[in-house]
Design a protein around this nucleic acid. Structure first.
Length: 621
RNA sequence: GCCGAAGUGGCGGAAUUGGCAGACGCGCUACGUUCAGGGCGUAGUGAGAGCACUCUCAUGAGGGUUCAAAUCCCUCCUUCGGCACCA
């Protein structure tokens, strides 16, 4: 899941997923309580094991009740109760003052046999690692703060090189960096650097030793939590399992799939799933003995379905399996997927996970379900705030479609902001797109007035050039998800076509080609109007949306002459026009021949003349 | 606190990735069409100076590299997102 090779995804999404999974390398080490129970802990710093002066358990840790000494029981219970009352958010506040209580119990540090006290504190989370930590106050900020507050022992075991000897009683803060191991028996003198995991020589040495002694092992931990797919709701795919008193849980037989949700459910404020309360739905027969049995009434999380819907969509009527393999081979993996950034660590992570699980089960091929991802930005309200009913700034699409038509609304959504950025809605701005669409319509449907004189060859050549230049740009922009500039280009071309029509171009082959190409470029932007004009006005075969994309005629797109600005000492002073095929030398002499350039040179010989990409001439005096 | 993204006219945004800053659209102004309004059409529209040809300044702020910087480098400011005691 952390390998994004070959995936054309936004870096932000890759980073979000990487942080969400949050892999950390370290070691698992077995401590023992005085009662003789094993307590496994995870640490990224096994090199500091000799500095572990106490242990901290999460208040929910299963061993807490067993280790709590009688005289501490009351305080422990009290602390557990108040931790349970706090919400996760309260508990998670990083700047919160650390609290905890001593349990009266002790553990043995396996590396040196030291007897160390066991505390409970809510800064240790049951949901990460094992819910218990070794505390090394000299080299961990949180443990340090806790130890200072409760007067616990602090023993430095990493000495930064070239600095005064660390002293547990006087050090002002935990020392996190590298150095040399001290107070660590035969490891004294071993170098420790800032690297994580086995790349750190100190950590590697200790891990090898732990494994040899059988006290611990190399280990990797993830912050990413297990995904609970079941929930007590009506809205979700049923979990096809049946429970029989006699034969336990069994899957629903294939010929009884799919299990459908009942439609006659009642919602009552009981906190229970309506499926549980339905009079008959949960009654089933045991697939093993045929006796009375009960259906699972939990349903699956909706992410379960969104993780593979793209596979089912390949062949929704297929009944031999989840999808038709022939369709899979044709369509998958998904070429381009677009959705909001809010899916970064949920839907998109689950979908990737699902694909890998299905791959391991031999059902799908390849490592990833979606090759290219592009996020679209959010359309904000006109007040530049997130749209919400409570703010009253919601712009309803149906109202806009009612007023402007779906094509205009679609075009404006593509035009008014960069796709991945989003922007506040502008109810005036859409008028521009409405005007453009109307002008497209008019250009194609107005009867062409008989022109007084035939169009000049220059007019037709110019039209064709603009058409193919636009096609080239639009083709590239579609590939890059740059929809706003596509529409700008189409607006520009429309203006050119109006001018060409004015100059009598209508009726020519060039004009017909321009119309055809224009509609093909318009089709993804304004699909209904493009189709209407294609079939009814141009009389072309239905449908425009299945036509091949037009090829750019590079010869037609080429300019005869190019205009270059000429800079003297970094400032544009003149512009020159040269034939498109002019050499650099010719461009240089044309630039120096300019009177204006000579004026700004003030009679001096130019030190340097640079022709940049045949786009600009820079004269340095 | 850590990580990331973004700052360009009155507004949304362009800028072929180092090469004419402001394409295209909104808004605004003028003119035309109209009894009028709307609509439509044409032209203008970064700021300052000038009768004008033009000139100067300008891409969050400051510095740097370069013939040339919105774009690259350094320092800082602002806004928005994500994570937030992860052992």
């Amino acid at each position: 899941m952390l390998n994004f090779d070959g995936m054309d995804w936004p870096q932000t999404v890759k980073t979000l997923q990487t942080n969400w999974i949050d892999r950390s390398e370290g070691a698992s080490v077995i401590f023992k309580t005085e009662q003789g129970d094993d307590v496994e802990i995870f640490t990224t710093r096994p090199d500091t094991l000799w500095g572990a002066t106490f242990m901290v358990f999460s208040p929910e840790h299963p061993l807490v009740d067993k280790i709590a000494a009688p005289e501490y029981k009351a305080a422990v219970e009290e602390y557990k109760a108040q931790a349970a009352r706090q919400s996760d958010i309260q508990r998670g506040a990083a700047d919160k003052e650390k609290t905890g209580v001593f349990t009266g119990g002790y553990a043995i540090n396996p590396v040196n046999g030291e007897r160390i006290p066991i505390w409970i504190a809510d800064y240790v989370l049951m949901s990460y690692g094992t819910g218990a930590i070794m505390a090394v106050p000299a080299h961990d900020e949180r443990d340090f703060a806790f130890a200072r507050k409760y007067g616990l022992k602090i023993i430095p075991v990493i000495q930064p090189e070239g600095q005064p000897q660390l002293d547990g009683d006087s050090m002002p803060e935990a020392y996190i960096g590298g150095g040399v191991m001290i107070n660590s028996a035969h490891f004294n003198g071993t170098k420790v650097n800032d690297q994580k995991g086995r790349k750190n020589p100190g950590i590697a040495a200790v891990i090898d030793w732990l494994e040899e002694k059988g006290i611990g092992r190399e280990s990797v931990n993830y912050r990413y939590r297990d995904w609970l797919i079941s929930r007590q709701r009506y809205w979700g795919a049923p979990i096809p399992m049946i429970y029989c008193q006699e034969h336990g849980w069994n899957p629903v037989p294939d010929d009884q799939l799919p299990v459908l949700l009942p439609e006659d459910v009642e919602w009552k404020p009981t906190g229970e799933s309506p499926l549980k309360l339905h009079p008959t739905w949960k009654n089933a027969t045991c697939p093993v003995c045929g006796g009375a049995a009960i259906r699972e009434t939990d349903t699956m999380d909706t992410f379960m379905c969104s993780s593979w819907y793209h596979l089912r969509y390949l062949s929704p009527k297929y009944d031999q399996g989840p999808f038709d393999p022939k369709e899979y081979d044709y369509w998958m993996p998904v070429d381009t997927y677009t959705g909001g950034i809010e899916h970064a660590t949920m839907h998109l992570l689950y979908t990737r996970f699902f694909h890998k699980a299905l791959r391991d089960a031999g059902i799908v091929k390849g490592n990833e379900p979606m090759l290219q991802l592009r996020n679209q930005g959010m359309v904000l309200g006109e007040d530049n705030e997130k749209m919400s009913k409570s703010r009253g700034n919601v712009v309803a699409p149906d109202v806009l479609v009612q007023k402007y038509g779906a094509d205009t609304v679609r075009a404006y959504l593509m035009f008014f902001a960069r796709w991945e950025m989003g922007a506040p809605w502008d109810s005036q701005g859409i008028e521009g797109c409405a005007r453009w669409i109307r002008r497209v319509w008019t250009l194609f449907t107005d009867p062409v007035l008989p022109s007084a004189e035939p169009p000049s060859g220059e007019t037709l050549k110019h039209l064709r050039r603009k058409v193919h230049q636009t096609l080239r740009k639009v083709t590239r922009d579609f590939e890059n998800f740059e929809f706003n500039t596509i529409i700008s280009s189409l607006m520009e071309l429309l203006n050119e076509m109006y001018k060409a029509r004015e100059a009598g171009a209508a009726g020519s082959d060039e004009w017909r080609e321009a119309q055809e190409i224009y509609l093909k470029m318009l089709a993804p932007v304004a699909p209904h109007i493009a189709e209407e004009l294609w079939t009814n006005q141009l009389g072309k075969p239905y449908s425009i949306h299945t036509q091949a994309w037009h090829q750019v005629d590079e010869t037609a797109a080429r300019e005869d002459v190019i205009e270059l600005p000429v800079q003297v000492n970094g400032k544009v002073r003149d512009r020159i026009t040269v034939p498109a095929e002019a050499t650099e030398e010719q461009i240089k002499s044309a630039a120096l021949a300019s009177e204006t350039v000579q004026k700004f040179l003030e009679g001096k010989e130019p030190k340097k003349v640079i022709v940049a990409n045949r786009r600009l001439v820079s004269v340095v005096a």
